[in-house]
């Protein structure tokens, strides 16, 4: 995955960058499978490696495939990136180890979900039970977000021909 990221940063051919982005998503999906998060892996593979790749290619067909070479390489951006990265890594030092049963995330509502979800909803997949039943409001919000995104893109990009015709009719 690290190699993919370095390639994405170094390459100037945007077509290759988009393809590497897809490979990165696929690698991330395999990593989620290793971590036993099958639902997340599924989403990552379908959305990251599938649809967003196609959308990026579609966007690429509207523009050039070669990145413009930056005129100057400032030292300040590198410094900002290094400082932010160091701060983030410093922050992870305090985090509990992966899979630690005493970690705060395992202590809060998660045990209730794992213990009660199947008994209360009789849905075998706990992830689905939490998503659709316990967190129904959240999921409704997510769907509305997608709805809004679709409507926004439709307003921005859609119906150009009709609008142009209307504009001509007015003149």
């Amino acid at each position: 995955m690290t190699a993919t990221i370095f390639m994405i940063v170094r390459l100037h051919n945007l077509f290759a960058v988009v393809m590497l982005g897809g490979i990165y998503s696929l690698l991330a999906a395999s990593m989620f499978v290793v971590l036993d998060a099958v639902d997340v892996a599924f989403t990552e593979a379908a959305v990251g490696a599938g649809i967003s790749l196609v959308l990026m290619l579609a966007a690429l067909s509207l523009t050039k495939t070669e990145e413009k070479v930056a005129s100057r390489h400032g030292i300040l951006p590198l410094l900002v990136v290094l400082v932010t990265g160091a701060a983030l890594i410093y922050g992870t030092l305090d985090m509990p180890h992966y899979g630690d049963p005493n970690a705060p995330i395992q202590q809060h509502v998660a045990p209730t979900y794992v213990a009660d979800a199947q008994a209360k909803t009789t849905v075998p997949n706990v992830v689905t039970a939490v998503l659709a039943s316990y967190r129904g409001y959240d999921t409704l919000g997510e769907v509305v977000v997608i709805f809004t995104a679709g409507v926004g893109v439709m307003l921005l990009l859609g119906d150009r021909r009709r609008r142009r015709r209307r504009a001509e009719g007015r003149e």
Partner: peptide
């Protein structure tokens, strides 16, 4: 619960599929 989740997921699926196809169509 079963029926509710079933219907709700159906709604999610319809919206997501429609939005994705629309996005692609508009770009293309």
């Amino acid at each position: 619960q079963h029926i509710g989740i079933f219907i709700v997921e159906l709604g999610v699926g319809i919206t997501v599929a429609s939005v994705m196809v629309t996005l692609f169509n508009l770009f293309a």
